[in-house]
């Protein structure tokens, strides 16, 4: 017979799993292939007395997708039957592209964005110059602009397949 304490822990774990599963279905509105979990913006989920608190670390501080993501997260967890959901936007830990999961990086490429190099919190010019084309895998590419159509993208040109492409830029 499991003790009451064991049952409580089991219940709590399965609740937490349900929240994480719900979060895996919340996508970045600007890159709909990738979930907020794969993007690495959810450092923590807590459940106390049926109340869910999600900590969320924003990607770029001025990103307009932030409010949309926050609301989508709230709705997705409410839809799982939890009574109250709070999404706290936090700067600790500071989000970095190093937080994007391997699966997330694969999906960025599938979406047509070159994944960011690992930067350990400090971007160098090389990380922007040496980017592999997401379409043809050539490394004969040229940086065109460190700013792009959204805050998180830089623009490059591939000299092999002769197409412009975007990179999810390292931060």
């Amino acid at each position: 017979m499991p003790s009451d304490a064991d049952q409580m822990i089991e219940q709590r774990t399965s609740d937490t799993d349900r929240v994480w599963t719900a979060l895996e279905n919340v996508k970045d509105p600007e890159i709909p292939l990738i979930s907020v979990v794969e993007l690495g913006v959810i450092p923590e989920v807590r459940i106390e007395d049926g109340r869910v608190t999600v900590r969320m670390c924003p990607t770029f501080a001025g990103c307009p997708a932030l409010d949309v993501m926050r609301e989508d997260i709230r709705k997705a967890i409410l839809a799982e039957g939890f009574g109250a959901v709070q999404v706290d936007v936090v700067f600790d830990p500071p989000w970095s592209t190093d937080r994007i999961t391997p699966e997330g990086r694969r999906k960025l490429k599938e979406f047509g964005l070159a994944p960011p190099a690992k930067c350990n919190g400090s971007v160098t010019g090389d990380m922007l110059d040496q980017v592999v084309c997401p379409y043809c895998d050539s490394d004969r590419t040229t940086l065109e602009s460190i700013f792009g159509p959204t805050l998180c993208r830089a623009i490059h040109y591939c000299n092999s397949c002769r197409q412009s492409f975007e990179q999810f830029k390292p931060v």
Partner: peptide, 20 residues
Amino acid sequence: EPLAQVARKLRGELKYHTMH
């Protein structure tokens, strides 16, 4: 600490401004 956290968070973004 709240101010230190914001400064740490914005460092990576500001880097692109100084590079530019």
